[in-house]
Computed example of a mutant assay.
Amino acid sequence: MPLFEELDTQDSPIGEISLRRRRIPILGDRDIYEVKLGDEFLMSSMFVAAEEALSSMGLAAVEGDKLDVVVGGLGLGYTAVEALKDKRVNELLVVDFLETVIGWHKDELVPLGKTLNADPRNRYIHGSFFDLAVDPATGFDPDQKARRFDAILLDIDHSPTEFLHEGNAGFYTTENLTLMAQQLKPKGVFAMWSQNPPEPAFEKLLASAFSTVDSHLVEFYNPFQNNQATNTVYVCQ
């Protein structure tokens, strides 16, 4: 198997997006999958602890059974698959703006596509999370308007101040967070991933829309730097 292979490259509304697979011999016998938007790295299968923690921490804060859950941002599928490990999940809607990324999973070009496709609780939604989030009269589910959810788990932007696309910046306001919160059931949870340490200004913003805001540092090993790195998961209710 070659040490590097580009599996797919396509144009998208926000730029050229590519899926690559590589092997780094010093890291052992494993395939590493990467997603790039132009020259920018969006996701690597080397660093998934925080993406998985987004689901485990977010759903741990939810009470009850038969949970209906939204994941904003498909990526390489780690947040979605981790959510489905919770047997209480009744249905998972995974919303992604990029039809190409959904296609990679449906066609099983990425390893977790097979897992997601085999689980009848999973449903892909092609659309803009940010547009759907601020339209509670329509909501996330095209088959059921104004549907409410037990948890909304967001992993799209790099952080609340570093955006995948500049158009996403307008989402982070009290008004829009409150509109999104209207799509949660009573005691529902909103959780969000960030690559940066907790940001006090964002915690204050979240507190303007939610009663409780908890910020969790997630540690993971970075073999390139030979040290522990951290991401943040915000959990709000």
Rank of each mutant, 00 (worst) to 15 (best):
L67A: 04
E52Y: 12
D135I: 03
A229C: 13
D96P: 11
Q183W: 03
M192G: 10
N122G: 05
D141T: 10
F171Q: 14
V70P: 12
Q144P: 07
Q225G: 14
D96Y: 07
T161W: 01
L3D: 13
G77V: 02
A209S: 12
A191N: 06
D214W: 07
L164S: 10
P197A: 05
D119G: 08
Y33V: 00
G170P: 07
E5F: 11
L132D: 13
P186E: 11
P198S: 06
G75D: 07
P223Y: 02
K36P: 08
N122K: 11
E40P: 01
A118G: 07
N226C: 11
E52W: 05
Y124P: 07
M1R: 04
K187P: 10
E51P: 10
V189A: 04
T115P: 04
V101A: 03
V71H: 06
F140E: 01
G167T: 11
Q195N: 15
E40F: 01
T9G: 06
P13D: 11
S215Y: 01
L164V: 13
E203A: 15
Q228G: 02
K187H: 13
F190H: 08
G167A: 13
D143C: 09
L93P: 09
G28Q: 04
S55R: 01
A169S: 14
L184N: 03
G77F: 08
L98H: 14
M46R: 10
R21A: 00
F4C: 04
V70F: 13
E219V: 08
M192P: 14
F224L: 00
N168I: 06
L74A: 07
L19F: 02
V35Y: 00
N226K: 10
V233Y: 02
G127D: 10
N222Y: 04
Y33H: 05
R30T: 11
A229N: 13
L184D: 00
Q144M: 12
S211G: 15
L42H: 03
K114Y: 09
I102E: 08
E219S: 13
V95H: 05
L92A: 07
K85P: 12
N222G: 09
P136A: 04
L27K: 00
G188W: 10
V235F: 03
S194D: 08
G113I: 00
A118K: 11
F41T: 05
L206F: 11
S215E: 08
E82A: 11
I125S: 15
S211Y: 14
N117V: 01
G72T: 00
D96C: 03
F163R: 14
I102L: 12
L132S: 15
V233R: 03
F202T: 13
F190N: 12
